[in-house]
Write a protein that binds this DNA or RNA. Structure first.
Lengths: 192, 192
DNA sequence: GTCTATAATTCGATAGAC
DNA sequence: GTCTATCGAATTATAGAC
C-alpha cells in the first residue's frame, strides 16, 4: 500500500499540477504552455499529468474555472454602476496572482478554438447576465458588446500586451478613466 | 537560362508567398501558421519559402508592413476627431480582405515576443504620433492609452474573438457607438 | 503510484540532385 | 530555380517495468 497523508497524496499532486497549469496557461496560453513545462514547474513527472487529467485539453478545462461573480447591478445606484463594474474587474484581475481565468482564456482563445468558444460562453452568460436586470431588453446586446469591447481591451493592453501607457496606469487611474465610459455603456444615453 | 516573364518569375512567386503568408498570419498568428501550410496555399514548395525569405521570422517581418496612416487630426475640427479616428480604423480593418497587419500582430503578439515588441513600437510611434499635435503633452500618454485600449478592444472582440454581440454590429453601429468614447478620450474632459 | 522509454506527429530548416 | 529527402528538435500521449 502507498503512503497516505491527511489530504490524499493524489489530491495534493493534482492540486500542484492545477496550480502550475494555471500559471503556465496564464502566462503562455494553451499552445504555448507545454505539459512538460507544467509538470517540471510542479516537480512532477509529465506522464502523471496525463494520468490524472487524461489529456492537455481536459487539464485546460479543469484549470479554467470561470466565475466572474459580477456584482448585482440592481443593488448599485444607477449612477455608480460603471465604477462598480470597473472596480470589480480590476479587483479580479489584480487580486489573485496569475490565476485569473479570463486572462488565461484571452491568451488561449487567439489560437485555440475551444478556448474561444468558452470565452464566448462566459461572455454571453455572465456579462449579459449582469446587465440584463438593469437595461432594457432591446438594448441588452448592444450595451453588452460595448462593455465587453472596452473591458477586454483594457485586459488585453494592460495584462497581455502590456503596452506601457496602459500597464503604467495605477489602479486609481484605471478606475477614474474607465468608469465614465463603462457608465455610459451601461446606463448612459446611446446615440440613436 | 531560366524562363523570364515580364515581372521576374522570382518576384511572382515571392508575391504569392507573401500573400499566402499574410492570410495565414492573419488567421492563425505567427505560431499557428506553419511554413508548410503557407507554401501549400501558394502552391509552392516549402523549401522555397526559406530560400526566398531566409526564415519564418524574416517572412513575418516582410509580411507585416504597418502603415496605419492615421489622419492628421489637426486638420479635423476638434469635435469630430473621435469619429474620424473610428472611421479610419474601421476602414483599414474592413477594407482590404484579410491583410491588415494590425490584426496579424494582434494574433501573433500573444504568443510571440517579437510581434509584441513590434506592436509596442507601432502603438508608440503611430497612435501617440497622431495624438501629439492635438493634445497637451502632459496628457499625451494617458489619452493614447485610453484610445489604444478601446480601439484594440474593438479589434479583439470583433475580428479575433468574433464575439457575436460585437461582430454583428454594422459599420454604422460601430461608428455611432464608439465615436463618442474616442472623442472623449482624444478631446474631452478627463477626470482629475 | 511513479517513472523510463518511446511511439507518432509536426515543425523549421538544410543539403544536394537535377 | 525547383524539388526530394531528411535532419534535429519539440510536441502530446501511451506502454509497461518496478
Amino acid at each position: 500500500m502507498t503512503e497516505e497523508v491527511s489530504p490524499r497524496k493524489g489530491d495534493r499532486t493534482k492540486a500542484a499540477i492545477l496550480a502550475s497549469a494555471r500559471n503556465a496557461f496564464h502566462e503562455l496560453g494553451f499552445d504555448g504552455a507545454s505539459v512538460r513545462a507544467i509538470a517540471a514547474q510542479a516537480n512532477i513527472d509529465p506522464a502523471m499529468v496525463i494520468r490524472y487529467f487524461g489529456s492537455k485539453q481536459e487539464l485546460f478545462a479543469a484549470a479554467v474555472r470561470i466565475e466572474l461573480r459580477l456584482p448585482d447591478l440592481a443593488q448599485v445606484p444607477k449612477s455608480r454602476r460603471g465604477r462598480a463594474l470597473v472596480e470589480h474587474f480590476l479587483h479580479r484581475w489584480e487580486g489573485e496572482p496569475n490565476e485569473d481565468a479570463l486572462i488565461m482564456l484571452l491568451r488561449s482563445a487567439v489560437s485555440h478554438e475551444d478556448a474561444a468558444q468558452r470565452l464566448h460562453t462566459v461572455f454571453a452568460s455572465q456579462v449579459v447576465g449582469a446587465l440584463r436586470p438593469v437595461v432594457a431588453a432591446s438594448e441588452l446586446k448592444r450595451r453588452s458588446a460595448l462593455v465587453a469591447s472596452q473591458m477586454l481591451g483594457l485586459a488585453l493592453t494592460r495584462y497581455v500586451l502590456r503596452l506601457p501607457a496602459v500597464a503604467d496606469l495605477t489602479r486609481t487611474d484605471v478606475i477614474r478613466d474607465f468608469s465614465p465610459t463603462i457608465q455610459r455603456y451601461v446606463a448612459g444615453p446611446l446615440p440613436h
